[in-house]
Amino acid sequence: MGQRYRWTIGFDADDTLWHNERFFQLTQARFAELLADFTDPDALSETLMAAERRNLGRYGFGVKGFVLSMIETAIDVTDAKVPATVIAELIRAGQDMLEHPIELLPHAAEAIGALAPEAEIVLITKGDLLDQERKLAQSGLGDLFDAVEIVSDKTPDVYARIFARHGATAAMMVGNSMRSDVLPAIEAGGWGVHVPHDLTWAYEHAEAPSTHPRFREIESLAALPELVAALP
């Protein structure tokens, strides 16, 4: 299908097409409240971030790994004295996150719809398979994508394989993460388009490749169709 078009355009999902990080931050705030008697919020946040980074290789990205990292952190900061009621509440918080309704970001559907007639549109997202499939189904965007790629991580090799498989002469990745959406896509030979989001997870931050010829940044997805049309 990709050979009908010049472009294969990949879209990130979480915090590019729909809200996601806000629910992690709300849950983390509740986590801090539950453990306020044991440690201060800043120290707890640092310990949790260290656990999340350490556990990415075990659990991958997504809600389930986040909940397991919170439980591990709770055991750590309480010297294994964390009440079972706190563990139970963390599990319930994770279940609530997995059931939360999807709220699209502005211009998501319009941008994809505008580009679909002239590009192969691919959702490229990482995280838990079931959760990502649920969010896509609830988003109402599923029919706009020519393909869906749910991957364990976003690396240059992963992008190179996806771009090659979809066969267009030019490839682009659009997303809010400099670390996962922009830099590895550029390294794989594609364009990287950054769409900033105020609540991007700290792990996803990286320095922008400002001088790279295949890097662009736009304020919102509303500007994407015009950007694509203007590229050489």
Rank of each mutant, 00 (worst) to 15 (best):
F215K: 11
V82E: 03
P196W: 09
G140R: 09
T85K: 08
E219G: 14
A202M: 10
G167M: 07
L35F: 09
D153F: 06
A80I: 01
E207C: 02
Q28A: 11
F24N: 07
A108H: 04
A116C: 02
E120P: 00
R179H: 10
P209T: 06
A88D: 15
R165T: 12
M178W: 03
N20H: 12
F38C: 11
M97D: 10
M70G: 01
D76A: 13
V148A: 04
A160Q: 14
A170I: 08
D12A: 10
V82K: 04
M178H: 02
D153R: 11
E46M: 14
L231E: 06
Q25F: 14
K126N: 09
E226H: 10
E99K: 13
T200M: 11
F61P: 03
I102L: 14
M1E: 13
T27Y: 07
M173E: 03
A32Q: 13
A119H: 06
A13K: 05
W7G: 02
E149M: 08
E118N: 13
R214I: 01
A108K: 06
V86F: 03
E149R: 15
S45R: 10
F11I: 01
V86E: 00
W18N: 00
D15T: 07
F66V: 03
A116R: 15
Y5V: 04
H194T: 01
R54M: 08
H197K: 03
D12E: 08
F38I: 00
F11K: 00
E89Y: 04
K154Y: 04
D76R: 15
T169V: 11
P106R: 11
F31D: 02
G62P: 06
A208Y: 00
T73S: 12
E149Q: 12
P209W: 04
A230M: 08
W7H: 01
M1P: 10
I75E: 11
L231Y: 01
S210M: 13
